[in-house]
Amino acid sequence: MLPWLLLLICALPCDPAGIPVSDVSLKTQPSGGWVMEGNKLVLICSVASATGNITYLWYRGALGFNLETKTLPSLTAEFEISDMKQSDADQYYCAANNGDGPIPSELVNIHVKVPVSRPVLTFGDSGTQAVLGDLVELHCKALRGSPPIFYQFYHESIVLGNSSAPSGGGASFNFSLTAEHSGNFSCEASNGQGAQRSEVVALNLTGLSLAPTENGISHLSSGLTKWLLGCLGPITVTLIFCYWLKKKIGRQSEDVLRSPPQTVLQESTYRNSPGPRQPEPLYENVNVVSGDQVYSLVYHTQQELEPATAQQVKTHWASEVSSGIYSKPRVNTAYVDYEDSM
C-alpha cells in the first residue's frame, strides 16, 4: 500500500491546473457588422475550449479601449450596446483568459447605418422663377444618411428622373422647361432603410407661350414677345411720321400746281416808264404838249406762255407797244401826272 501512496503524492503536482482558452472569436448580432442607428448591437465572445472560470474583455478600436469585463464559467459571453449611434461605428474585438493570459480575437468592423433625413429640394441658380425653354436644375439633398443614397424627382406625382450619390450628399437632375412643367415639384431620398419625401416647391413660369400648332411650332416666350414689342414700337412711330411727311409734301406740290402762274411785267424800253415793281396804273401821262392834248402811255401785262406761242405774243406785244402812245382830250378822270410825279 505504501507504493501506491507514494505514486499518488508524486502524481498530484504533475496534473495540469486546467485547459487554457483557445480559438477566441467575436460575433455580432445583427450579423454582418451592420446595425441601424438607434438599434442595439450585441457582441458575442466565445472560446473553443477552456476549463474553470473565464474572464472576458471587450475592446473598441485598434488601440484597445476597454468597454466591459465579465468572468463566467462559460465558453461564451455577451456584451450589449443598447443605442447605437453613427459615432459608434468602429473596429471591435474581445479577449478571454482563464489564468494563462488573455487571448484576443480578430478585429470586426461595425458599421452604423443611418436612415436618410427629410431631403431639401432647391432650383439651382434660377430659383423658383424661370422662363419657358430654360434648362432647370433640380437639386435634392438629405442632410443625414448613410451612403449610397438614391434620389427620385417628381413633378406633381409624375417621376421626372432619378439620380444617386454613391458617397452620400446630394444629387441633381436637369430638364428643359416647358409649359407642361407648371406646378409643384418634390424629391425623395432612400438608402434602403426607408424613404423620405421633401416638401413641395412651386415653380413660377415667367414666360408667355403660344399654343403649339399642328406643325409643332414651339411656344413663344415672353422675353421674345417683349423684344418684338420694343422693336416694333419705334418702327411704327417712324413709319407714321414718314407717311405724314409724305402726305404734307404731296399737298404742298398740289398747291403749287394749282396756283396760277405769277404775272411778269415786261420791262419798258421807254425812259419815263415805271419799273416792273412800280404799282401798275392802266394809264400814265407822258407829257402835256399844249392845250387840251395829253399824251399817255398804256401798260399791258401778260402771263408767261409756252415757247410755241412766244413769237406770236412778241409780235402782238410789239404792235400794242407801237400803238400805245396816243392822245386824247383831257377829261376829268383819275390819272397820275407825269410832271407832278417828277
Rank of each mutant, 00 (worst) to 15 (best):
I103A: 06
G18S: 11
K246M: 04
R197V: 15
N285V: 15
G101P: 03
V21C: 04
A202S: 15
L121M: 04
G127S: 02
P147Q: 12
D83F: 10
A62L: 10
G194T: 08
H300L: 14
Y335V: 14
A202M: 12
S218N: 08
Y93S: 09
G133N: 00
S87E: 15
S323V: 01
N204T: 10
G324W: 00
V112P: 07
G145H: 02
T28V: 03
L63C: 02
Y299E: 10
D100Y: 14
V159H: 00
R118S: 13
S259C: 07
A189V: 08
K248Y: 12
C45S: 14
Q303E: 10
S172F: 06
C242W: 11
T301S: 13
S49Q: 12
K246V: 10
S268V: 01
K27P: 00
L232K: 03
L228I: 15
Q303Y: 11
Q86M: 13
S341V: 05
R60E: 12
S253T: 14
L107T: 01
V289H: 13
L210P: 03
K141Q: 08
K247S: 09
Y56T: 00
S319K: 14
I110L: 10
T236P: 01
L210S: 14
S319N: 02
G233H: 08
P30L: 06
C140G: 07
C242F: 13
S341T: 08
S253V: 12
S341Y: 13
L177C: 03
E78C: 02
A17Q: 07
G124R: 01
E188S: 14
D292T: 07
E188A: 05
F185I: 00
V108W: 03
L177I: 06
E267W: 09
L43N: 08
E180M: 09
P234N: 05
K226L: 10
T76K: 13
P119I: 06
V120H: 09
G223R: 14
S157T: 09
V298S: 13
G207T: 07
P20N: 10
C94V: 06
C187M: 09
G33H: 04
G161H: 08
S273H: 10
L57N: 05
I249W: 09
S218R: 11
T225L: 15
G216F: 09
G99W: 04
I110C: 06
G133M: 03
T28A: 04
T206Q: 12
P166Y: 06
T71G: 06
N174W: 03
K247Y: 02
G99T: 09
L143R: 13
G33C: 07
P102G: 02
Y270I: 11
V42H: 12
C231N: 15
R60M: 10
I149N: 03
W34Y: 15
T178W: 00
S172V: 07
K314G: 07
L132D: 05
Y92E: 01
V331G: 14
G230A: 04
T128I: 13
T225N: 10
N53I: 06
W58P: 04
A62W: 11
G223Q: 12
S167I: 02
Q252F: 04
G250S: 14
S209C: 11
P13H: 06
S253W: 09
V201T: 08
E156Y: 02
G52Q: 11
R197L: 15
G32W: 08
N332T: 11
P279V: 05
A171L: 02
E37L: 11
H316E: 13
R197G: 03
A189C: 08
